[in-house]
Design a protein around this nucleic acid. Structure first.
Lengths: 252, 252
DNA sequence: GTAAAGCTTGACGCCACGTCAATGTCAAGC
DNA sequence: GCTTGACATTGACGTGGCGTCAAGCTTTAC
């Protein structure tokens, strides 16, 4: 199964021109090229594109992105590092929102503005060098160390656990059992453990995710129907959500 | 009180070159220019710069930003519109995180990727036209309508309420009363009502902010010391946080 | 069979600055 | 008073990541 250049552009929310540019500079070459000269992309290309766009949001230049991707072995463990960045971005946004709310309050109160507060959360580029360092030399220190410390056996074991968890969720929801019952709660527990194992997740180095984070993720499964497809559609996602929130209420 | 070009650049997290560029194109002219030719900026210039940078993050071009700012009357009510955008960005990020978590799970489970899920939350530019429209012609429909529908009297009334609320928070915290007591809870109630009045805030058109949002904001006051300065420093922010969380526990 | 839509390869354009270069100015220390 | 180093000025050129034509071939839809 492969896609035309336009199809992949729409999927990724970019343009065909950009994809051709990426081909030109050798950043993302199509899976195959038809006898007519058309570019066709496959699934691995999609994964690579997702990573390219993540790195672009990070502010990296295209050559730097190429370096990072080519020095890469495992896509998943690099994606974990991306997650960390994304979460920092969320915090930056949160601070920016707070800053604007603050400015509104001050302006409407007719008070003096405190310059330092006004721009909190704004500096988007400040870490640029640090970012280049991290993604260049440092080789994903945290995430990498974590993944590398596993033996090949442990790695496949980890993968199988994820896969099994997904299947078990679907099976449980299809059997129509009680999401607050023991069996579903055991699944929620496993889900919790899985999240804890992802570096960069809040609480991954300690007691595990916070209640808010855990519940928030569960809600997201339902809120976005396409996302819930992983758990066998809307109904499955709802089941997962119910089980997870019940678990959070009791244990977190 | 005014600042040199470098000082203001550091405050805003940008460069002096950018500020000179903004001066060149007439987007942000210094408050005054010394006899030596140096640029000096004052407080209104800072406010304008904050808004410029917000609009830049929106993806607007500099000429468009100039248009928007010059057509502007009230800074606060425009900032409210910005808030809405920022919150949408947060949601986009949340979806992007979910998407990446999803990809990790799928890759490690060795499952097939579903292309539509992979890029959820990525499209950053899709709304560009819509944004230009909104900030151009549409004249901040929601926020504007809300603000304009108020009489002059109501507007000053609103402003005074904000200002008074801030002062009351500080006074209460300095008196050392119990944050869970009736008096502090009344303040939390007023804070709640204020947030409800800000369009774009989750729940602003209904029952008011959700518990999570309310508590999250309270936590932020403490987490970032500079931000808490509005409430009379660390201690004041802690007091506000305690009162707000107690309020949320009981009423939300 | 024809039109509309999509693909190709160039090639030029462009915005928001980065990055020199050459020079003037301010504050601190000797 | 003189030097030094940080910071300011204007001017000009450079550039990254595409957008945007142009001219022509292919595929799809009717």
């Amino acid at each position: 199964m492969d896609w035309s250049i336009q199809e992949i552009a729409k999927l990724a929310g970019t343009t065909s021109r950009t994809l051709r540019h990426y081909d030109d500079i050798g950043l993302l070459t199509p899976a195959r090229i038809g006898s007519n000269g058309y570019r066709y992309y496959d699934e691995p290309a999609l994964v690579r594109l997702q990573r390219i766009m993540l790195l672009r949001e990070l502010g990296l230049g295209l050559p730097a992105i190429g370096d990072v991707l080519d020095r890469e072995e495992s896509a998943p463990h690099a994606l974990r590092s991306h997650l960390e960045w994304l979460r920092q971005e969320q915090q930056r946004l949160a601070r920016q929102i707070a800053s604007v709310v603050n400015t509104i309050g001050a302006l409407e109160g007719g008070e003096r503005l405190m310059a330092e507060n006004m721009f909190d959360g704004f500096d988007h580029t400040q870490y640029k060098e640090e970012v280049e360092q991290r993604w260049g030399k440092d080789a994903y220190a945290k995430s990498d160390a974590w993944w590398r410390s596993m033996s090949a056996e442990e790695k496949t074991d980890w993968q199988q656990r994820v896969s099994q968890l997904n299947r078990d969720w679907i099976a449980a929801s299809e059997r129509g059992i009680d999401p607050t019952g023991d069996e579903a709660q055991a699944l929620a527990q496993r889900h919790f453990e899985w999240l804890r194992g992802i570096p960069g997740t809040p609480g991954s180095d300690g007691q595990g995710p916070t209640k808010e984070y855990f519940v928030g993720l569960a809600e997201m499964y339902v809120a976005d129907e396409r996302f819930g497809a992983n758990y066998g559609g809307q109904a499955g996602a709802g089941f997962v959500r119910d089980a997870m929130t019940a678990y959070a209420d009791r244990n977190l």
